[in-house]
Amino acid sequence: MWDWGFALEILPTLAKAAIVTVQVTLLGFLIALSLGLALAAARIMQPWTAVPISLAVELIRSTPLLIQIFFLYFVGPSFGLTLDAMTAGILAIGLHYAAYCSEVYRAGFESVPRGQWEASVALNLGRWTTLRDIIIPQAIPPVVPALGNYLVALFKETPLLSAIAVMELMQSAKIIGSQTFRYNEPITLVGLFFLVMSLASAWAIRRVEAGINRRYRR
């Protein structure tokens, strides 16, 4: 049933793939965090962007990530956008989660009392200075847990990239399986890896949260 020798033998291959998975996760989340913040900020600073942005966000949230990955990778070239699988995958995941994150940031912005904007006007602070120094430092700490949840969710969706043959964990496990006709070890190990990493990141997020609470919520 379970062959320890085989498990040990495939471990290096899976470890290499795990690095790809982590890379996709971190880069994708970086895009999601920064683009999400930019979108949420744009809605506040330039009210005319609110309608196009919410349409785009709705479009992304209402279609499956898998389709978006395929679209970017296979349909992109007909629009002159040719990307390698890894780039297309990271971009698709990043865009997808940027849409979710922008809504989280928006809730954060809305939780800042209007009086903070008014005090900033009364002090003659510029709008961008107000956003950067006054609003964002208050808007983000309360939404860190929600953003953290999306980090874990994004991480767990990276196996979708196996559909465009990115050499991440799932793809490696599938290849090992089809070559050796043994699926028990590779699939179980991949599952275990996700379990451990998810728990570890949930723990890390709690630490960040606690740190932020100490610093900002007095």
Binding site: A119, L123, L125, G126, I134, Q138, R218
Partner: peptide, 19 residues
């Protein structure tokens, strides 16, 4: 409407420095 993430002093120097 003080800025809650800044100390009393920081509240008082933000605008003089930035504006």
């Amino acid at each position: 409407n003080l800025f809650p993430h800044m100390t009393a002093l920081q509240n008082c120097i933000e605008a003089p420095m930035k504006v």
